[in-house]
Design a protein around this nucleic acid. Structure first.
Lengths: 190, 190
DNA sequence: AAAACAGACTAACAATTGTTAGTTTACTAT
DNA sequence: ATAGTAAACTAACAATTGTTAGTCTGTTTT
């Protein structure tokens, strides 16, 4: 895997911003070109298709999620500590890629076949690992014995859609999230 | 506002299923027609544009959210009870419209101008009302004094994306959600 | 039986889509 | 200065898009 050139990364960054606002399908190559002050055809000096932009935008981030949660699962920590690390992982990635995460969440189905398969496989592994952490936490009595799927869904939903709120609300910086989000998700609000 | 005909509602239902899978922009009128076993042009005997389908899909649900949360806010209950009612509202609507909620969450930006404005106004009012409930709960000592925006975001994210899990996980029925989700969101998991 | 109508059809449109081919421009290395 | 190259350009394409016009068919209403 070659490291993408400067200009190529710029295309991905600009596209991420546009995809976030209207979705992958509604953004045209001419939209992307205009946002970069060039013509649509010029984009093809750097990328080979619209879908390639999406691949560059999504896959690297998905891989980071997968690799990091593997490491978290393999560590010797308690289940609660592992969940805290997972929350921290999502905060970190959100702060670094607030725009690209919109496509990772909403446009992944437009990935080309092989990358789509790869993405879904990573996503499944990610949820399986998270599920195992939660279930072990329940079995060990660390975590309350509610329906495991409900716990998984409730935590993942929140940390996966962080990108929607980050940057929009002024008091949503990495520090406020770090100190508040873990407590709210783990200890509740009452 | 005329009550839509039988066939019109069928178009909206079929479209909702397709929009959920690929998003509004990626679904063509020919896709919708094929799913109904007719030709694209025939759709226009019932609807006047693709955007009208989206309006019918989103606005009525948005209005139900808005009207119900108004009623909840106006009731004489405690803040925690109000939040429980809001959670229940989302469960109810999700169970009734699992497909349409995908468009309400991801395709609202493709509404025509006047309905877009109306939708955003309702969404803002909805969040304002929910924010007021949470802040009063904190002020009254009913709710822990974490950052209010974090609490709002964490609950809304979960109940707004319920549609992604409902129907996919077998143990996600209305009853399991009703008994588990409120506890997980309010009391946490440890 | 005649008339009206709902709801499907075929055919076509103008606009927009992603993309390619070939050309020009400006900088960099020889 | 010359050659080479990266990255922009113009022009065009074939396919697909939402939508309209006009027609046909069967059922319902008069």
């Amino acid at each position: 895997m070659q490291k993408p050139s400067e200009r190529k990364l710029e295309i991905v960054t600009v596209s991420a911003r546009l995809f976030k606002e209207k979705g992958y399908s509604a953004v045209t190559m001419r939209d992307i070109a205009q946002a970069m002050d060039i013509k649509a055809a010029s984009l093809y000096n750097h990328i080979k298709s619209k879908q390639e932009i999406l691949v560059l935008m999504i896959i690297a981030i998905a891989e980071e999620y997968t690799e990091t949660i593997r490491a978290i699962a393999a560590s010797g920590e308690t289940s609660v500590e592992k969940i805290e690390k997972v929350i921290q992982l999502h905060i970190d990635i959100t702060v670094r890629n607030p725009d690209a995460l919109a496509s990772l969440n909403n446009d992944w189905m437009h990935l080309p076949k092989p990358e789509l398969q790869y993405f879904l496989q990573m996503r499944e592994e990610y949820e399986d690992i998270f599920r195992a952490i939660v279930k072990k936490g329940i079995a060990d009595g660390e975590i309350a014995a509610y329906n495991a799927e409900v716990i998984i869904f409730s935590i993942l939903s929140t940390i996966r859609t962080l990108y929607l709120w980050y940057g929009k609300k002024k008091d949503f910086n990495a520090n406020v999230l770090k100190t508040n989000l873990k407590k709210v998700l783990l200890e509740g609000i009452i």
